[in-house]
Design a binder for these strands. Structure first.
Length: 828
DNA sequence: GATAGCCGTATTTTT
DNA sequence: TACGGCTATC
């Protein structure tokens, strides 16, 4: 989509002379610059001391485009914040003249705090430091009319969007099962990430959905948003882009305002964000574009949601004369950790190429340790033991003696289903843990319902909110009534709440429905009036009471009802920090997060994705198996670049560790309820033996084998690997295992076992093979019959009690009833 | 109009 | 296995 930039207006005219009493912009006053240089020679300000030469260069190169390639743990945030402090301290710009964008609210918050420390608390004055989206909202509220919106537009979240699209699909007379709204929402999101409006989308894309009506549907969606006075997340970027393009005077205002632009995590920018940035960074010819982007191509892990690593790779082309500064001195990790991570990531092509190094040399530092476990249960158990050992400070290797806080440890998983096993284990152990990420507070059902009431009170035109709560709690306003309301509103081109208040004056509805609707409309009229009269906290409570919403949950006898009521209380509490209901709504739509309890000492469990930017003393990386990590789907859908992104994810995982990094893989994992045999991740193969150590069977292979009653078995033959997974013969060992795997299980009848070669796709022509894929082939007749006595390598002996295709339900003597693929059992 | 069971599906996630 | 969404039923 790079050619979409051809039509970005370029300003050739001279910049307007600055008449405001602001400090001289960079490059304007020679004398001023000379004086600054002199001052600098005299004494570098404190905030600069302690920076290494590269960091310092990144901070002090203020004129022109700068790309800072900041490897993991190289002090990226420090550079960014110091740079801002430096610009302020040297009088180059006022806080309000800097645009600083981040991706997450967390990053924005952290940056604000750290600048505050450096500058001394005056950061309130940085109005343009925030996420792409929050700055987008701010721009759009100022110029809403230029996008055909009112400045009090609502921001819809994914859930609203899907419901809306579903309506549109149905309105088109299409089958909403054949054309799922969720999928189309994803497509729209993808287009918007690329900066494409309905007219811009590729013909193929447009035809691929809804019997060729993709483009019309997208256009209809945009029209509907406008009539709802609403935006989705993508619009927060796209509308400003359109406004800038169509209103050069508006854009010029911002050009004059923003003397310095800073972008964090540049490798995560998508095309739309890039366009947005380009428009704002564009300067008249000959005037320096003071853009500073900070990022790390090796940590680009959001390609799947539209991030374009390319943006960072071609920065120098986009911003001619750009200075590229690499930060490679790592202050976080041991040399073993860096060595392992560096060797792994070197398998990727198409990188800008950095090698992290550290000065710290400590012979006591542990290597990265790779552990094998029999299955995911054992993996969780062993990780739990290791955590407890560290916590106690037992003498295990080099961590001996010292006690470690749980707060300093984290388990980073590829996919969230892996978390459960750890949680279960930690609950039985009584080990504190916290799950980071996961279902978020504002996404909970009861919170969304409550929010819908608040939204509708503030915004009577919010039809989505109306539809959400019109019959929640149940008040006898079912589909029929709602559809009638909907049609009526559409026909008159008025919001549904307005339609409702007209309809209750007529005899259209049955008395029962009419009464219910009348009460609802009255309630909203009442609440709207109170908006100015009472505090938003009181109002919020009243709304939830008077609507019957709290009663609904009080009368609900289910187990989760009390929790939901508690959440509602929490919601009201969290409103305290805001001045008005409107302010609160805005906050929630942009900041979909709620704070975690930081006080307790607990192990963190999270996905690799949400671990980016964090660091821990000890990191556990479970689940390094083919199919899970790299994830099969990333391979299938992303091919080669998918594999590289997975590898970057692995790199991110390892580089989170300061001192200890433990990697695990298992031989058996339950996937969708079926036990499957798994192979070690190819990434294990890509770790350098010099920095990695294979744990001697610290996991109890033998003992465990006995535990389940299936003791010595042919498994011992199939598993030469666990013990011989030792450094020099690593590859050979793996080859052995692959063969063993195939010999024992692979050639069974029935299910398909495929070997997939990655001949072309492997880095440097390397052949990656041995992908074991057990496909569900339901129509292949099983060679087993009900009642057969069979042996399973994990569960031992049992009798088949049911067969569905190649899936067997077996009553095992020791392990109880399990469902397994027929390839993993053998008749005895 | 409300509810019980059935079917299909199943990464990663911020805003 | 586990959940959500939809259909069929009362």
């Amino acid at each position: 989509m790079t050619n979409s930039f051809d039509d970005i207006p370029f300003f050739d005219e001279e910049p307007a002379p600055r008449k405001n009493p602001e400090p001289a912009a960079g490059g304007l006053g020679i004398a001023a610059r000379a004086m600054a240089a002199r001052d600098q020679r005299r004494a570098a300000p404190d905030y600069l001391s302690g920076l290494n030469p590269e960091q310092r260069e990144a901070v002090e190169t203020l004129d022109g485009p700068v790309l800072v390639l900041a490897g993991a743990g190289t002090g990226k945030t420090r550079v960014l914040t110091t740079r801002i402090a430096h610009i302020l301290a040297t009088g180059r710009a006022f806080p309000s003249q800097m645009l600083a964008v981040t991706f997450t609210n967390k990053a924005a918050r952290e940056m604000k705090e750290r600048i505050g420390v450096l500058v001394g608390g005056a950061v309130e004055g940085m109005p343009w430091l925030g996420t792409f989206h929050s700055i987008g909202v701010k721009l759009l509220r100022r110029h809403a009319e230029l996008a055909g919106l009112r400045s009090d537009f609502t921001i819809l979240d994914t859930d609203d969007v899907i419901r809306l699209i579903k309506q549109l699909i149905q309105a088109e007379g299409l089958d909403d099962k054949r054309w799922p709204a969720r999928q189309f929402a994803g497509m729209i999101d993808g287009w918007k990430n690329k900066g494409l409006l309905p007219k811009d989308i590729p013909e193929g894309d447009a035809r691929a959905f809804a019997n060729g009506k993709g483009r019309e549907l997208y256009a209809a969606y945009q029209a509907r948003l406008k009539s709802l006075n609403a935006c989705d997340f993508g619009d927060l970027l796209l509308h400003p882009i359109a406004i800038f393009r169509q209103n050069p005077d508006v854009l010029k205002d911002y050009h004059d305002r923003f003397r310095y632009i800073l972008v964090d995590e540049y490798q995560d920018t998508n095309t739309a964000q890039y366009m947005w940035l380009r428009l704002l960074a564009q300067r008249p010819k000959g005037v320096a574009q003071n853009v500073c982007c900070v990022g790390d191509d090796d940590q680009s892990i959001y390609g799947w949601r539209g991030a374009e690593v390319d943006n960072i790779l071609r920065f120098e082309k986009d911003f001619p004369g750009a200075k590229v500064i690499k930060l490679e001195r790592n202050y976080r990790s041991t040399e073993h950790i860096l060595g392992a991570a560096g060797h792994l990531i070197a398998h990727n092509e198409g990188r800008l190429g950095k090698t992290l190094f550290t000065d710290r040399v400590d012979p006591d530092d542990e290597k990265v340790i790779v552990h094998a476990a029999w299955d995911s249960e054992e993996e969780a158990r062993a990780v739990g033991e290791e955590i407890e050992r560290l916590q106690r400070g037992d003498g295990n290797g080099n961590s001996g003696g010292k006690k470690h806080a749980l707060n300093d440890m984290a388990i980073l998983v590829r996919a969230s289903f892996q978390m459960r096993e750890f949680e279960d284990r930690f609950v039985t152990l009584g080990l504190n843990y916290r799950v980071i990420g996961g279902p978020r507070f504002y996404e909970r059902l009861e919170i969304r319902d409550a929010m819908a009431y608040f939204r509708l009170t503030c915004q009577p035109a919010d039809d989505l909110a109306f539809e959400r709560i019109v019959n929640t709690p149940k008040r006898g306003l079912g589909d029929t009534t709602v559809r009638y309301l909907h049609d009526y509103a559409r026909a008159r081109d008025i919001p549904m709440l307005a339609a409702a208040s007209e309809i209750i004056e007529t005899d259209e509805l049955k008395p029962k429905a009419r009464k219910a609707l009348f009460d609802l409309v009255q309630n909203f009229r009442n609440w709207q009036q109170k908006l100015e009269a009472v505090t938003h906290l009181e109002l919020a409570e009243q709304i939830l009471e008077e609507s019957g919403y709290t009663d609904m949950w009080k009368n609900d006898k289910s187990a989760e009802a009390p929790g939901r009521l508690e959440n509602l209380k929490e919601l009201i509490r969290s409103m305290e920090a805001f001045e008005s209901m409107r302010g609160f709504l805005e906050h929630v739509s942009l900041v979909m997060e709620a704070e975690q309890n930081e006080d307790m000492d607990a192990v963190s469990i999270m996905t690799l994705h949400s671990a980016k930017g964090l660091e821990f003393d000890t990191v556990f990386l479970p689940g390094w198996e083919e199919g899970l990590f790299p994830h099969q789907r990333a391979l299938d859908e992303g091919g080669r670049s998918g594999l590289e992104e997975e590898r970057r994810l692995a790199y991110v995982g390892i580089t989170r560790a300061k001192h200890r990094c433990h990697i695990w893989f298992v031989s058996n994992r339950r996937i969708h309820g079926l036990w499957q045999s798994t192979m070690p991740s190819r990434f294990l193969d890509e770790l350098p033996p010099s920095h990695v150590e294979v744990a001697a069977s610290d996991n109890s292979y033998g003992g465990y084998g006995g535990r389940g009653g299936y003791g010595q078995s042919r498994f011992d033959k199939a598993e030469p690997f666990a013990n011989s997974y030792s450094t020099p013969g690593w590859r050979r060992a793996q080859a052995n295992r692959t063969d063993a795997t195939r010999d024992n299980w692979g050639t069974r009848s029935g299910h398909a076992v495929e070997r997939i070669g990655y001949g072309e796709s492997g880095p440097r022509g390397r052949t990656i093979e041995g992908e074991l894929v057990a496909k569900s082939v339901a129509d292949t007749p099983s060679k087993f019959s009900i009642g057969d006595r069979v042996f399973h390598i994990k569960f031992g002996n049992g009798n088949i009690s049911a067969i569905e295709g190649n899936k067997l339900t077996i009553d095992f003597d020791k392990a109880g009833q399990k469902r397994v693929l027929d390839g993993f059992v053998e008749r005895v």
